[in-house]
Simulated scan of single mutants.
Amino acid sequence: MSTTYTLTITMDDTTVNDLLNSGYYLYAYKAVQAANANGGAPLVWFQTQTISENTVITWTESYEAYTSTETSFTDGTVINASASYPINLGQELQVNSVAGTGTVVNSSDASVISILNQTSTQFTCGISQSVQGSAGSQLCALPLYGNNLDTITPVEQVMVVFQTEQVDTGSVVYQCYAPSLLVNMTGMTAATISYDINNNWSGNTEGWCTQYPAATDITPILVQSS
């Protein structure tokens, strides 16, 4: 049975009302480690305008590997999956057609999700993860060159940010234009943080939260070299 994780964001009435009245969205990103992190991009994993004093994000260890024929993207590009398959750590998606389709098989490395391109066609690839009880959306976009192998390890680190800009899930985002918080939930299944619209984020004092100012390049934070 897969583990369920819960991140709770607490806010007071004033902050909740100000966020709702000003049209803010809550965005969440999920970190990965990748052998081919160079050229990779983080994608919006989750977004909502359903905000309350206790806003909860819940996810499970349920993954899919995807390919996309979109190989050129910039900030704001939505990465649409051409093919997607349920997959676990220790498995490999073997891509065997120019459409990006393939077959999932067991692999020799139980610590990673592998995507092997058996064609000479370049793709974009990555993994998706279930969130809020849905099938989930993509976490990252990585270049998958012809006859090459990408390996990806999901990391229990979640970045959250409130912004007024509307960005769809699955969109490439290189910078957050508001203060963000990275929550490292490695070894934890539940955590609570707080947010104030004027004083920004606060969490623990033990080092599992890291604040980043507006305009930070989030790419190396969320697409880490393995």
Score class of each variant (00 low, 15 high):
residue 2 S to K: 10
residue 2 S to N: 10
residue 3 T to K: 12
residue 4 T to W: 03
residue 6 T to Y: 08
residue 7 L to E: 04
residue 7 L to R: 00
residue 9 I to M: 08
residue 11 M to Q: 12
residue 13 D to I: 11
residue 13 D to P: 06
residue 14 T to H: 13
residue 14 T to W: 14
residue 14 T to F: 09
residue 14 T to V: 13
residue 15 T to F: 06
residue 17 N to L: 13
residue 19 L to R: 03
residue 19 L to T: 04
residue 20 L to I: 10
residue 24 Y to P: 03
residue 26 L to Q: 03
residue 29 Y to E: 05
residue 30 K to Q: 11
residue 35 A to Q: 13
residue 37 A to L: 01
residue 38 N to F: 05
residue 39 G to W: 04
residue 39 G to A: 08
residue 42 P to S: 05
residue 46 F to Q: 00
residue 47 Q to F: 06
residue 49 Q to L: 09
residue 50 T to I: 15
residue 53 E to W: 07
residue 54 N to G: 07
residue 55 T to M: 07
residue 55 T to L: 07
residue 57 I to M: 03
residue 60 T to P: 04
residue 61 E to Q: 08
residue 62 S to T: 15
residue 66 Y to W: 01
residue 67 T to Y: 03
residue 67 T to P: 02
residue 68 S to V: 04
residue 68 S to M: 04
residue 72 S to L: 07
residue 72 S to G: 13
residue 73 F to Y: 13
residue 74 T to P: 04
residue 75 D to I: 07
residue 76 G to Q: 11
residue 76 G to R: 08
residue 77 T to D: 04
residue 78 V to N: 13
residue 81 A to N: 14
residue 87 I to V: 07
residue 88 N to A: 13
residue 90 G to F: 06
residue 90 G to D: 08
residue 95 V to T: 10
residue 96 N to K: 08
residue 98 V to I: 11
residue 101 T to L: 10
residue 101 T to E: 09
residue 104 V to A: 03
residue 104 V to S: 03
residue 104 V to M: 04
residue 108 S to K: 15
residue 109 D to K: 02
residue 110 A to F: 09
residue 113 I to C: 09
residue 114 S to D: 07
residue 114 S to M: 08
residue 117 N to M: 08
residue 118 Q to K: 15
residue 120 S to C: 10
residue 120 S to H: 14
residue 120 S to P: 13
residue 122 Q to P: 08
residue 124 T to K: 00
residue 124 T to C: 05
residue 125 C to I: 01
residue 130 S to I: 10
residue 131 V to C: 05
residue 133 G to P: 00
residue 134 S to T: 09
residue 134 S to M: 08
residue 137 S to F: 13
residue 138 Q to G: 10
residue 138 Q to Y: 11
residue 139 L to E: 05
residue 140 C to W: 00
residue 141 A to F: 01
residue 143 P to E: 07
residue 147 N to C: 13
residue 147 N to P: 10
residue 147 N to D: 12
residue 151 T to W: 02
residue 151 T to P: 01
residue 152 I to N: 03
residue 152 I to P: 02
residue 153 T to D: 03
residue 157 Q to N: 09
residue 158 V to Y: 01
residue 158 V to K: 00
residue 159 M to C: 11
residue 159 M to Q: 04
residue 160 V to E: 04
residue 160 V to T: 07
residue 160 V to G: 05
residue 160 V to P: 00
residue 160 V to L: 15
residue 161 V to W: 00
residue 161 V to F: 06
residue 163 Q to C: 13
residue 164 T to P: 06
residue 166 Q to K: 12
residue 166 Q to A: 08
residue 167 V to Y: 07
residue 172 V to I: 15
residue 174 Y to D: 11
residue 176 C to H: 11
residue 177 Y to I: 15
residue 178 A to R: 01
residue 178 A to Q: 01
residue 179 P to R: 13
residue 180 S to R: 02
residue 182 L to A: 01
residue 182 L to E: 00
residue 185 M to K: 02
residue 185 M to H: 03
residue 187 G to Y: 01
residue 189 T to N: 15
residue 191 A to Y: 05
residue 191 A to V: 12
residue 192 T to Y: 01
residue 193 I to K: 03
residue 194 S to W: 09
residue 197 I to E: 15
residue 197 I to C: 07
residue 199 N to D: 12
residue 200 N to L: 10
residue 203 G to A: 06
residue 204 N to E: 11
residue 205 T to G: 11
residue 205 T to P: 02
residue 206 E to K: 06
residue 208 W to D: 11
residue 210 T to Y: 04
residue 213 P to I: 07
residue 214 A to I: 06
residue 214 A to T: 15
residue 225 S to K: 10
residue 225 S to H: 09
residue 226 S to M: 06
residue 226 S to C: 07
